[in-house]
Computed example of a mutant assay.
Amino acid sequence: MVTSGALARAKGVLLGLLEEAYQRREQVALICFGGAGVELRLPPSRAAHWNEEWVAPIGGGGGTPLVQALGAADGLLRMQALRLAALQGWLWLMTDARTRERPARPAYADEIRILDFESSRAPLRRAQQLAQDWRAHYQPVSA
């Protein structure tokens, strides 16, 4: 996602999603993943106002540990479901899906949105297939 400019687009989309969550006073968490591994960047908390300086350090590239990232996300959703039974768990997956991993649908995600940042001339459409397999909402994000 780094070389295609998709990471920069994803950061812009992320800021927009966080702003919406802030306005609605929703709970959010952020897990980043890439060649450096999986990082819990923002533990579950009430959404705050974020800006470009906050997302600038988020990196990408070098591989996609998708299964590991989704496992971490499902773990957070599980903990929140146990703590707040009435809370609906949403998972927003922002990816170019340039991985061969075929993860199972996260069990504790009540609603899943997959934002596809793939921008290859020969698209693999793996994010689209994942959305179909999971019965998730799929949205391509164009350049």
Score class of each variant (00 low, 15 high):
Met1Val: 02
Val2Leu: 12
Thr3Ala: 14
Gly5Ala: 11
Gly5Gln: 13
Leu7Ser: 09
Ala8Pro: 00
Ala8Cys: 00
Arg9Ile: 07
Ala10Ile: 02
Val13Phe: 04
Val13Trp: 08
Leu14Ala: 04
Leu15Cys: 05
Leu17Ser: 07
Leu17His: 08
Glu19Ile: 00
Glu19Thr: 06
Ala21Trp: 00
Ala21Tyr: 01
Tyr22Lys: 03
Gln23Val: 01
Arg25Lys: 10
Gln27Ala: 06
Gln27Arg: 15
Ala29Leu: 11
Leu30Cys: 10
Phe33Leu: 12
Phe33Ala: 13
Gly34Asn: 14
Gly34Gln: 11
Gly35Trp: 11
Gly35Glu: 13
Ala36Trp: 07
Gly37His: 14
Val38Asp: 14
Val38Asn: 14
Pro43Gln: 08
Pro44Lys: 09
Pro44Leu: 08
Ser45Glu: 11
Ser45Thr: 10
Ser45Met: 10
Ala47Ile: 05
Ala48Thr: 05
Glu52Thr: 11
Ala56Met: 05
Ala56Ile: 00
Pro57Cys: 04
Pro57Trp: 03
Ile58Cys: 02
Gly61Leu: 08
Gly62Cys: 06
Gly62Pro: 09
Thr64Val: 07
Leu66Asn: 11
Leu66Glu: 09
Gln68Trp: 09
Ala69Pro: 15
Ala69Ile: 12
Leu70Pro: 10
Leu70Met: 09
Ala72His: 10
Ala72Tyr: 09
Ala73Ile: 07
Gly75Phe: 10
Met79Arg: 15
Arg83Lys: 15
Arg83Met: 06
Leu84Arg: 14
Leu84Tyr: 12
Ala86Asn: 13
Ala86Thr: 14
Leu87Ile: 05
Gln88Asn: 13
Leu91Phe: 12
Trp92Gly: 00
Trp92Val: 15
Trp92Tyr: 15
Asp96Ser: 12
Asp96Val: 09
Arg100Asn: 03
Pro103Leu: 04
Pro103Ile: 01
Pro103Gly: 05
Pro103Glu: 03
Ala104Gln: 12
Arg105Trp: 02
Pro106Tyr: 03
Pro106Cys: 04
Ala109Lys: 02
Asp110Thr: 07
Asp110Gly: 15
Asp110Cys: 05
Ile112Ala: 03
Leu115Pro: 03
Leu115Phe: 09
Leu115Ile: 01
Phe117Met: 06
Glu118Thr: 01
Glu118Tyr: 02
Ser119Cys: 05
Arg121Glu: 07
Ala122Trp: 11
Ala122Lys: 09
Ala122Cys: 01
Leu124His: 08
Leu124Pro: 00
Arg126Leu: 06
Ala127Pro: 08
Gln128Met: 08
Leu130Arg: 08
Ala131Pro: 08
Ala131Thr: 07
Tyr138Phe: 14
Tyr138Ile: 01
